[in-house]
Structure formats: C-alpha cells, structure tokens
Write a protein that binds this DNA or RNA. Sequence first.
RNA 1: CGGGGCGUAGCUCAGCCUGGCUAGAGCGCUACGUUCGGGACGUAGAGGUCGCAUGUUCAAAUCAUGUCGCCCCGACCA
Length: 575
Amino acid sequence: MRWTQTLIPTMKETPEGAEIPSHVLMLRAGLVGQLMAGVYTYLPLGLRSLRKAERIVREEMDRAGAVELHMPALTPQELWKRTGRIEAFGNVLIQFAVRRQNKQVHMALGPTHEEVVTDLVARHINSYRQLPITLYQIQTKFRNEERPRFGVLRTSEFLMKDAYSFDTSVEGLNASYQKMYDAYCRIFSRAGLGYLAVEAESGPIGGDASHEFMVLADNGEDTVVHCAACGYAANLERAETGKRTAKPPAAGDAALKKVHTPNVGSIEQVSKLLKCRERDMLKTLVYVADGQPVAVLLRGDHEANEGKIRRAVGATKLELALPDVVERTTGAPVGFAGPIGLKVPVWADADVAAVPSAVIGANEGNYHYTGAQLSRDFQVAPDHFADLRNAEAGDPCPCCAGKLELRHAIEVGHVFKLGTKYSEALDARYLDDHEQQHAAIMGCYGIGVNRILAALIETTHDENGIIWPMALAPYEIIISPINVKEPAVAEAAEKLYGELTAAGIEVLLDDRDQRPGVKFKDADLIGIPLRVVVGGRGLKEGQLEIKWRTEPEAKMIPLAGAAAALAEMVRKAKE
RNA sequence: CGGGGCGUAGCUCAGCCUGGCUAGAGCGCUACGUUCGGGACGUAGAGGUCGCAUGUUCAAAUCAUGUCGCCCCGACCA
C-alpha cells in the first residue's frame, strides 16, 4: 500500500482527553478515531492489526476443533427474559422497540450470546451423537457501559470472540474447557502478549470454575494477585492467602472502656477521632446469608471478600444487610456494630485474632468501645475463623513460602464452565443412548479482540510510539524513500516495493513528499517492525539501510537481492 | 449515579478573572519558490455561527442560568 493512497492520519500532539499510552498512541498513530464516548472507528491501519488478531484467534479456534458461525447482534428481548438476564444486565443491555405493522417489537443488542447460541442448539441438536460441539463467532458486542474509559479498553461496542461448548458429561466439559484454555495460551503467546491465567470467580454469569487471562499493565482495570516465587495467580475476588500465623496478642492490660463517638461511624472517622490506627480497630459487618443475619469481624483496614464469606458461612446467597436489618440485629444504627453481646453467629477473619486490644462498635448509637480483647470481652468459635478478606500485598502465598503482590492487569480473555444454567432455561436437551433427556453441559469462552491490540501497545510501546510484533503489525515492512522527487530514489523504492509485494510481504511505501524526519517519526509512531530507507547516499554505494523498530541502530544491506533478503528476514521474524 | 475538569480553526492551545474596534498563535491544509538522513524555511492564502439556548447589558468568546458533549476520580464496606 502506498501511504498517499490510504488514510493514516498521524498526529504530532496528544489529543485532549487521551491519557493512557494505548489510547494516546492508537489515536496519534491513526489506528482509530473516536465517534462518541466508548465508540471508535477502526481506520485502515487499526483495522489491519485488528484483522490480524482476529486471524490468530480464528486459526487457533479452528485448530482446537471449534466451529465458526455468525449470530445476529439483533436479538428478541423475549430470549433474555427466559434466562432472567434482562434484570441481571439491567442498563448494560441496550434495549429498544421498533414498530412493525403497528405492533411493537422489543429487541436488544447482544452483549454476549449464551442465550442465542443455546437457543440455536435447542433447535438443532437433539442427540448425544451430535455432541460434543464447540461453536464460536467473532462478532461485535454491545454493552451500555455506565462509564466507558481508557480508550478502547472499555467501550460500548467491541469485537469479541465468543465460544460455547456443549457436552454430555462433566468430564467432557472439562476436556472442552481444557482445549479452549490451551488455545487461549497459544493465541496470547502468538500475539506477543505476556499474560497470566488467573483463577477467577465466575461472576454474575453463573457456573463454577473459571480462569481469566490477564496482561499485567499499570493502567489495567483489574487487580491480580501474583506470587513471583511459584507463579500462583488469581484475581482479587478469588485469591486465597496462605496460613496467616496469628501472633498471640500481647498480654493486654487495657480495660474495656466505652467512649462517646457522636455521629462518627465509619472506620476512617473513628480512627481519626480516637487517634488510633485502622489496623487496631475491628469492623463488624452484618450480612444476610440465605435470609439469616450473620456478623463478620474484620480488621479495620481490611476489605471484606463476599465470595469467601459466602463459602465460609456455607450460604448460597449472601448480601450486605440493609440498615433496618443492621439495627434489628445490633440494636444500633449502621456504624456502631460490635461483637459484644451479638445474638447472631459471628465469623472472623484470621487476622482478627492478632489484634490485641481493639476499638469496636458498642452496639449502641454514638458509642464505641476501646480496649476490647478477644476471649475476654467477646467470643468467636475456633471454627468460625477463616480467610474472609481480600488478599493484600505482602500476604503469604497459599502455595509456597513466597509473598503475594498485587498488580494491575487488563483482562483479555475469560474461560468458564457454565453447567446447565442456560441449557435448562432454554431447553437445550439431547437424548442419550438410553432414551433419557438431559440438558447439555456448557462452557463459554470469550476474548476481547480489541483488547489484544490495546494490551500489546500498553505493554510494549516506547517514547517514540507503538512497537508491533510481526504477528499484529499492520504492515511488515515500511519503505521510507528520502526525497521522492529524486528519480533514482523513487525508482529504487518503487522497484523494491513491487518485488516485496510480489513476494507476499505486506509493505507500506511512504511515498509522501515529506522530509525524512517526518517519515522517520511517523514510521516509529505507527510501529512497523522493519523500516527500509532508500536514499541517494546509500544507492550510490549500492546499499539500503534497514532498521528494526526494536533495535537502536540501523544497518546497511546490499541493494542487489535486497527483496529476497528482506522477505527472508520477515519470514524469520514471524517464527 | 455522586464529585471534579474541559468545550475558541482539522489538531494543540492563548484570550475569559477585570465585557468594548475586524477573535489570535503554533502545527496541519492550499499555491509558488528554496530545501531534503530524525517532525525545514520564505511569500501569499483558505479555514471560526468562540458547543447550544436563554438572560443581563448600549455592547457578550468574556458575566449569570440552563442544557448538550467529552475527559478524569469515585460509586458497598458500618
């Protein structure tokens, strides 16, 4: 492609509003253009990279035995009602009605396709002989994000590869899941991304085991907990901590004392008022577990982890108690709950035992206690101590002697085992070899294709611009002729361009009548892996200059046979 | 949804506080000329309903109110 015949609107300055590197560089390099908040046009250069990411995904899906189809983005709202996800998605689901022959037709733009694919399977698959099968598509998804942000990392319209497996047994599901997991590893490796596969909660989509594929990046929206020593990785919701050895509290002699804390309920305010550290306080959270209130004690500076609490308590549904329930349970308004005298089951995080003398709520409005001691002033049954909080940096690793660290990350993929939630709701059943009907056991597997690009840029750019790996580069080689008005230069550049193109290399010829500095800056900015400079100086000596985007220095190669040599370099770089 | 910031040329911004001639700069764009190995220079140009609406005023980019758009932070934790 000739630069002058395509559209690559590079920008010298950072557009107002772009802050993170991937956003800034995608705009400056002319990859994307913004239409509105969270909605972007892919310009020619960006589209080429997007297509390359897509191709890698498609090749690996096909190799893993998944079969491609294409489902509509337009869906009937009825389908979402049948699985209860109209409510679950709420405002995220883009819903609208149109009129047809004077009747309202209610539709939604697909934010994901479990419903559509399960309905499809319900219609066309009815025998165990047709299973297992994994269907996938690469398609635009629509989600009304409350707050789109970070350029193309969180958008309202995005390209997603979504795959769905249907099996007749849990073993089959596990096998299908593993195939996708392995395919994801190959995809992200081929894309040049450093990633972690982390254990994850399955979230509102339902089901059990799941993994997220995370790319560590300072601007990532997610937090992963990682142990550098053994490689343990999990997202914050899921991360376990190793055994926290509770130091026996120093023999405290402080007496329990009630103090007046008028209108001061939050941990932060109380800590300020009483001049104590948050870690010397205990907070008492009231949850409703399967309809029954329970109290949970945490150190003041720790964050509750509802998933862990739910599992520890053994509840299927757990939510924070509403203010009236808190009042009924503790006898005090929200902000003054404490463990002393509570009539409901009390659970405690492991670190609670190590707080020797704590500030706690007094279960009486506007009062707290200081000097509270476990055992002496309040009790927690030994089997009610558990890991109930989010992991923090420095916590012991659950798998080795190492320490955990917290890192920001971009989620680029997610695989999970769904079970029969959707197949039952939508009657995707098959007949087994004993003429018994069963709901198909499902898994689903998503990749944010746009995020592959953004994550790559976010992690590998330098001060001059993007640095594409061959696998994602919009062009493999850029030819930068110095002064296109010089016939010898123009001819040599054209000849090389023709030869490389004929050899199947993707070449961008910068045929603009621009000064060399402009061309070099732009070549660096758009990040083409290999730059070939055709200049009068080199030509006189029968030489071409080549420079890898990743290398600081250029080098010269003979003009004779240059096309073949360059094609070989590109081929090698692709390996 | 809550809080904050910003809307002036294609892009980045100045001017606004303290209202006053024909609204500015740099980059980019057009034409011509000189240049040509890391974002050249000269000359001449094109390009704006100062986001929009209402109000205050003799007079509004500038003040007030409203509205729309964009960006950032937060959104349960007693």
